[in-house]
């Protein structure tokens, strides 16, 4: 038998999660449906009322990050539910690998799911609200990646906690959404700047805050994940 290193173990866990997703589309489908419904409801509400006076660049960032954050809760909860059914998280805990690699693997899989969700969601939001991003696609990808990383880092840890205590999405959203508020505020502000054509230099403090919180959440989760999984 070979020793399985940290990143090899993380990759195996992530690949297994994505393999499960590919077979069922369970978490991704639930997230996408939820997010598209949020966009539709907002588009419908704005379409006929006084809110129509709001410009698209003022609306889209808020609606987009609202849809991303709530859909992430749905997706992360579903991905952890898969582990709860056969008590497989306990199986992973007993495997001869660094337990932080379980966290890293699940984080990678959740990040891929959220990235796929955003690939569908962003063009839809732009079309629904008739917004224009100019040429700032790369900057938007950077903002989405930065803030989504923090959201996944925290969501994966809280998802494991919720899974261990046998609770569902309600507890996950109660834990995750308040704690991720700094990331969501940074995401909304930076995305708004891009839709207004202001560029990222004007929101560098917000981006620094998002990076700081993301790294803080990641390292705290990596250090504490073993204790979360302990029986």
């Amino acid at each position: 038998m070979k020793t399985v290193g940290f990143w090899r173990a993380a990759w195996l866990v992530a690949r297994k999660d994505l393999q499960l997703e590919w077979r069922t589309f369970d978490a991704l489908a639930a997230s996408v449906v939820f997010a598209v419904v949020v966009l539709l409801v907002f588009q419908f509400a704005v379409g006929g009322g006084p809110a129509r006076q709001l410009s698209a660049d003022a609306l889209v960032p808020g609606v987009l990050w609202l849809a991303i954050s709530f859909s992430s809760v749905v997706g992360i909860a579903r991905s952890m539910d898969v582990e709860r059914r056969g008590d497989t998280l306990a199986g992973l805990f007993r495997a001869p690998i660094d337990r932080g690699a379980i966290y890293a693997g699940k984080l990678i899989a959740n990040a891929v799911r959220i990235a796929l969700l955003e690939v569908i969601l962003v063009p839809l939001a732009i079309v629904f609200f008739n917004a224009s991003l100019g040429g700032a696609w790369l900057e938007l990808i950077f903002v989405l990646a930065l803030c989504s990383f923090g959201l996944c880092a925290l969501g994966t840890l809280f998802g494991a906690i919720v899974s261990r205590v046998g609770r569902g999405e309600a507890l996950l959203s109660t834990l995750l959404l308040p704690a991720s508020t700094p990331l969501l505020l940074a995401g909304v502000t930076a995305t708004g700047a891009l839709f207004r054509g202001d560029g990222l230099a004007s929101v560098s403090r917000w981006l620094g805050m998002a990076a700081g919180f993301g790294l803080l959440y990641f390292f705290v989760a990596l250090a504490t994940f073993e204790y979360v999984l302990e029986e």
Binding site: V4, V13, K16, Q19, V82, G86, T88, A90
Partner: peptide, 24 residues
């Protein structure tokens, strides 16, 4: 508790756990 992934096949389950345990 089975410690198996319900949506993976029997073979995929065994291959996944074999890899995680470093089986050649």
């Amino acid at each position: 508790a089975s410690l198996l992934y319900a949506d993976l096949t029997a073979r995929q389950n065994l291959e996944f756990w074999s890899r995680l345990y470093g089986v050649e």
